[in-house]
C-alpha cells in the first residue's frame, strides 16, 4: 500500500476494502526494518477516503458510531452517571463510591455505560470497570471529578478518518476538562488515554494536565492489600497501551502486587497479538480467527484468568467465547485489571 502510494500506482487504495481491514495495532511498526510509520499513513489515507465519501464497514449496525456522532451535538443533555449509584449492577463491594465537584483528578469514563447496554448479553463488565476505577481511586485517597457532560473521546472516529466529528468531540471535551481546573485525567480505557494524551494536543491544543491510564497510577502507589489471594493469570496487552504508549510493565506490576502469578502468552508486551477488531469496524471471520488464536495462547499458559486492561479487548474475547464451538475448547475467565484490584481491596 505504502509503495503504491509513493509510486503513484495506489489510486485504487481509496476504494480498497483492505484500507479498512488494518487493525491499527502497530505490530508492523514495531518490527519494521525500514521505520515505516504505518499507523500515521493508514489514518491519513482513511481521512482522505472519508473526505471522498467512502467508509469502512461498521460492525453492530453502526450503533456505536451513531452515539459518538450524537455526542458531537453541544446541546445534548445526557444521563450518563446513573452507574455511580447502580448498586444492582455489581457486587456489594462497589457501594458508596465517592466523587467530588472539585478535585485535582478527573476520571474520564468514556463509553463504558453505553458498552454495558450494548454488550450485556455477552457479560461485558463495562460499568463494573468504571465503578471499580472510582473505588480504587477512593482507596488511594482520591475523590475524582466525573463529568456529567463528558463526550466520547472520539478515538474510533479519528481512526476511521472521520476527522470533523472527532474534532468537534475533542473541542467539547477539552472545554469541559479545562474548566474543572484539575491537573490530572485518569482513564480506564487505553484508547481514551492515547487520544487525550497524544491526539488532543495536535487537534485542540494542550489540555494543561497529565493523562494517565489507571494501571500506571496504581503501579505507582502502595495498595496495602493484606489478603492476597493467589491466582495464576495471564495478561493481554492492549495495542494502545503496550505499543502506542509503551505501558507494558505497570499492569504486570499491579497483578504481582495483588499476589497473582503472571504467566506470559507466546506473544506478549510489544509483540502481543491484537484482540481482532479496532474502531468497531470490519469485524468478521478474520477478527474471529485472531480472537481464537489469542484465546488459544491464553489457554496454553494454564492460567485460570485472562486479564485485560481494555474494555474493548474484553468484549471481543467474550464475543468469541459466546460461540459454543470456541467456548468448549477455550473457555477461560476474562477480567479487567481494575476490577481485580477493586475485588482485592474488598
Amino acid at each position: 500500500m505504502v509503495e503504491e502510494t509513493i509510486t503513484g500506482a495506489g489510486n485504487g487504495l481509496l476504494e480498497s476494502d483492505q484500507l479498512w481491514a488494518c487493525l491499527t495495532c502497530g505490530r508492523c511498526t514495531e518490527v519494521c526494518p525500514s521505520d515505516v510509520r504505518f499507523l500515521g499513513f493508514i489514518r491519513d489515507v482513511r481521512t482522505l477516503a472519508r473526505e471522498s465519501g467512502r467508509q469502512g464497514r461498521c460492525s453492530h449496525g453502526a450503533t456505536i458510531q451513531t452515539w459518538m456522532r450524537m455526542m458531537a451535538d453541544p446541546g445534548l443533555d445526557q444521563n450518563r452517571l446513573d452507574w455511580l449509584n447502580d448498586e444492582a449492577a455489581t457486587g456489594r463491594h462497589l457501594r458508596g463510591l465517592r466523587t467530588a465537584k472539585a478535585s485535582d483528578t478527573i476520571y474520564f469514563v468514556g463509553c463504558l455505560p453505553h458498552y454495558e447496554v450494548l454488550f450485556s448479553k455477552i457479560g461485558a463488565q463495562a460499568v463494573e470497570i468504571a465503578q471499580s476505577a472510582v473505588k480504587v481511586l477512593n482507596h488511594l485517597g482520591i475523590e475524582p471529578i466525573v463529568l456529567a457532560d463528558e463526550r466520547c473521546c472520539g478515538h474510533d472516529l479519528l481512526w476511521e478518518g472521520e476527522l470533523d466529528t472527532f474534532r468537534r468531540l475533542a473541542a467539547l471535551n477539552a472545554e469541559r476538562l479545562r474548566a474543572t481546573g484539575a491537573q490530572r485525567i485518569v482513564t480506564t480505557c487505553p484508547e481514551c488515554a492515547r487520544t487525550l494524551k497524544l491526539d488532543y494536543p495536535q487537534h485542540v491544543g494542550d489540555l494543561g494536565m497529565e493523562v494517565v491510564h489507571i494501571s500506571h497510577l496504581i503501579a505507582e502507589n502502595e495498595l496495602g492489600i493484606q489478603d492476597r489471594g493467589a491466582r495464576k493469570v495471564t495478561y493481554h496487552d492492549p495495542c494502545r497501551l503496550a505499543r502506542h504508549m509503551d505501558i507494558r510493565e505497570e499492569p504486570r506490576q499491579v497483578l504481582s502486587a495483588l499476589g497473582s502469578e503472571v504467566v506470559e502468552m507466546q506473544h506478549s508486551r510489544a509483540r502481543a497479538l491484537c484482540c481482532g477488531t479496532s474502531a468497531w469496524t470490519h469485524c468478521g471471520a478474520t477478527a474471529k480467527r485472531l480472537q481464537v488464536d489469542r484465546l488459544r495462547e491464553a489457554k496454553e499458559t494454564g492460567a485460570e484468568t485472562l486479564v485485560t486492561s481494555c474494555a474493548k479487548c474484553q468484549i471481543h474475547f467474550k464475543c468469541a467465547l459466546d460461540d459454543p464451538r470456541v467456548a468448549d475448547e477455550l473457555n477461560i475467565e476474562i477480567k479487567d485489571l481494575v476490577t481485580l484490584v477493586a475485588e482485592a481491596i474488598g
Binding site: W67, L76, Q78, V117
Partner: peptide, 11 residues
C-alpha cells in the same frame, strides 16, 4: 429495551 437504555444515556 436496549435502544431505550442507550437513548436514556443520550438524554
Amino acid at each position: 429495551q436496549q435502544t431505550a437504555a442507550l437513548a436514556h444515556l443520550l438524554g
